[in-house]
Design a protein around this nucleic acid. Structure first.
Lengths: 344, 344
DNA sequence: CTGTTAGCGCTTTCAA
DNA sequence: TTGAAAGCGCTAACAG
């Protein structure tokens, strides 16, 4: 039983090196402030003892945890099922590694205690993933002095926003798809936090969806459809629970009874479009598909899509969350890609 | 400027409620220990002041951070590019939510400072993703008193292991694939931590790969090939850098010159097999594919695969990391799935 | 049921 | 260049 189970503390190191705890501390945090031989003695003592600085003690005194807190305002595990969320996280993670910061996921479960959990987290700043207007976590974070950044909105005083102009992009991509005179149907992200799968029509839709991204895209699709002289009110709309191919398959099955052979499937993601395509390949070989995110798989299968560089947005969010200067909102440019070419 | 920027502390709450800090503390942590009206007074004072318990102060005193640390012993951002890793993380996250624990990613970049970063992290236990035998992080974590669990090995004193019997599974799946008399080639995960893409043959392979999963699967494939009366030494082997479809495409292109029309592509994941299939669909329509992980997409395209429930493994790892009792190693059962049916 | 004491591990401030 | 004092926010252990 060689190892001593008690934590090795800075005081132990100082004692062994024959210096005060302060000198030992400086030997690690400000090596230049300490005489070379003293510093070496401290370092030697530390490695002999197996000393590691304790992040908690350090954080308490210094007030900085060197952690970025990431919040997905719904069940945390969903974050890993959505490939777009994964891309976003990869971007956040890249910056964390570059800046020597840790990455803490703040667990949320959609209940009333979420706001408290978020505010109590031992992090220096917050990165939030798109959420609903009325999400209480938003209000909580907005009132916290730590920097906070949100991808996809909603915009809010006290929270920096990194977004695309989803309305214009949706209008543009749908308009392009409708040029061929096809009959549109829409596959939409959830309309509320219940995430209930359903089929409806434009006329039945609430005037505003609480998720700003979903809301803006729906408005864009609507404008495109009406500008094409078609009826939004009677356009079939499938609402999915999550952004997965599986949900795209289900949505397509739900829509199938109302589908014309020349249907234009307007989906809010390539993921959903790919699922729909797979479900309809045999029954509706002439259908066309619009997606979002410009995934390689989507491009390969001829899905027209909107670029949405989420990895880059993850990077921007992380950088902003690290910057106590509260930089301004950022709008990410987009373009439409179809079958290999890009325009606008 | 209404809000006071100074942090609201428990002492402030106590003062306002006219009680001692200890009573205020108990009002939050052990409500039952405090008289109902006192408790209410404290809670009211807290919400009026906007008080939130500080996780750092709490952790320092109690010695528990309520955080699980997840370590991917290479550049952190890679974790989000590998769909299998994402599944694993989803499992870990589920348990964190259930148990009210936080999830901290410990940033690593594959350099010498990783071990220190890991040990200094403010977490109560560690979950590691498969790594190499000689990874210094392993030794560091094994010597730490906090519980540690690793998915995929290597096994090590002081670290709980959650694994499959990759050797037997690889032997079984390759044997089944070789029944039809096809000529095998292998697409392998990296052989070392450099992750260099290359093509080689069995004869050139080092006798042991430092990644235990890769090593066991290669040995299984080899046994199957030799049992089928074929030459392992001359079997072409493509080594990829990462587990993505894209890498599968590249591997297939690298192997193409050596491919017979009846080739059996033995890949270490469905992801790689799907990439290879896509690359070879036109030039080698008769090829057959073996994968791993039993993904829905793989099954749909007729890839024979091994089940590898990583979400479940993530759950098991998280539970074990939370349990200071250091439960024993766990072996996950597997089965082979092909074209929709499952056997053994 | 409530309060006092003490101190977790570290570092800021100031003095030597 | 080094050290002493003080305390970050909280809670275990014990008294009252």
């Amino acid at each position: 039983m060689p190892t001593n189970r008690r934590r090795v503390t800075l005081k132990d190191v100082a004692a062994r090196a024959g210096v005060s705890p302060m000198t030992a501390s400086y030997a690690f945090t400000r090596p230049a402030r300490v005489a070379a031989d003293t510093r070496d003695r401290v370092h030697r003592a530390a490695s002999e003892l197996g000393y590691r600085p304790d992040a908690v003690g350090r954080a308490l005194k210094s007030g900085r945890t060197h952690q970025i807190g990431v919040v997905f305002s719904e069940h945390l595990a969903y974050a890993f099922d959505d490939p777009q969320a994964a891309q976003f996280l990869a971007g956040v993670a890249e910056v964390c590694v570059e800046e020597g910061q840790g990455l803490t996921f703040i667990p949320t479960r959609g209940d009333a205690a979420d706001a408290g959990r978020v505010l109590s987290a031992a992090v220096d700043g917050f990165v939030l993933w798109t959420t609903a207007q009325d999400d209480p976590v938003l209000a909580a974070v907005a009132g916290d002095p730590r920097p906070a950044v949100i991808q996809g909105g909603p915009p809010r005083q006290g929270i920096v926003c990194v977004t695309q102009d989803d309305y214009r992009a949706a209008l543009a991509v749908a308009s392009q798809g409708l040029r061929e005179g096809r009959t549109p149907v829409v596959i939409s992200f959830p309309l509320d936090r219940d995430r209930e799968r359903m089929v409806t029509i434009g006329a039945e839709l609430p005037s505003h969806a609480p998720f700003p991204v979903t809301d803006a895209r729906l408005r864009g699709y609507r404008a495109a459809i009406e500008q094409a002289g078609l009826s939004w009110r009677s356009t079939p709309i499938a609402v999915v629970a999550r952004n997965t191919q599986r949900d795209g398959v289900e949505a397509a099955r739900d829509l199938a009874p109302q589908l014309t052979p020349d249907a234009l499937i307007i989906a809010m993601s390539d993921e959903l479009a790919l699922g729909a395509r797979q479900a309809l390949l045999e029954t509706h070989p002439e259908a066309a598909y619009l997606g979002w995110d410009a995934s390689p798989a989507g491009r390969q299968l001829g899905i027209t899509s909107v670029t949405n560089p989420l990895r880059d947005q993850g990077r921007r969010c992380a950088r902003a969350a690290l910057d106590p200067g509260r930089p301004g909102d950022q709008e990410i440019p987009w373009s439409i890609v179809s079958g290999g070419g890009a325009c606008t």
